[in-house]
């Protein structure tokens, strides 16, 4: 993250507090999707945002929310740009963000999960580009009762970034922020 001036730092802080449109318990800063903010002139600012998943429909809502927050600070010309590289990973979610997700009933992603590693690990697949560094499958903890006896129901769930699991201890289904 590049921050130049005190003004930029203040704007970054305000924009960072914007809640995620689909998971409002977590902020954009905690989600790790804000890449850069630069004041380019009086009332003019550029923001770089990276998507969690390329098709994530929340991206447009995020850009609109960011523009609104910055307009309240007197920024009349706001340009929100989408950047893809380096690709976002679930490792960019802050510890505080992970804690909030779990409290909200969404199991946080396991750390250190490369994409192909995660999908390959889940499926025992042969075509993963990078194998998971460690051959053990870290358990996903149930956000309701804390049990580690949980099973995967579907790799795809209510939003692009989540998988659907069920707890074998308390019987409840829950979303899991899947590793990417």
């Amino acid at each position: 993250m590049v921050t130049g001036s005190a003004l930029e730092e203040e704007l970054l802080r305000l924009v960072g507090e914007v809640p995620d449109p689909e998971l409002p318990v977590i902020s954009l800063a905690e989600l790790g999707v804000l890449r850069r903010i630069e004041v380019t002139g009086p009332g003019r600012v550029e923001v770089e945002l990276t998507p969690t998943w390329t098709g994530c429909p929340a991206l447009e809502a995020m850009a609109a929310d960011i523009t609104r927050v910055l307009a309240e600070q007197g920024m009349s010309e706001v340009a929100v740009r989408t950047v893809l590289a380096p690709a976002w990973t679930t490792d960019a979610i802050s510890p505080e963000g992970r804690r909030k997700l779990a409290e909200h009933g969404v199991a946080p992603p396991r750390p250190g999960a490369g994409a192909a590693g995660a999908a390959g690990r889940a499926g025992g697949a042969t075509a993963g580009r990078r194998p998971a560094p460690v051959g053990v499958d870290l358990a996903v903890r149930c956000p309701h009762c804390g049990s580690t006896r949980t099973v995967l129901l579907s790799r795809f769930s209510s939003t692009a970034c989540k998988a659907l699991r069920r707890c074998e201890s308390c019987g409840e289904p829950f979303d899991h922020f899947k590793e990417v």
């Binding site: 893809l84 690709a87 490369g114 390959g120 993963g128 790799r155």
Partner: peptide, 20 residues
């Protein structure tokens, strides 16, 4: 390259789904 680097992680899940 930037799009490919992003999308390859998504497609890993698609391929896994098809394999299963």
């Amino acid at each position: 390259a930037p799009l490919a680097g992003k999308a390859v992680k998504e497609v890993a899940y698609h391929r896994d789904h098809a394999e299963q």
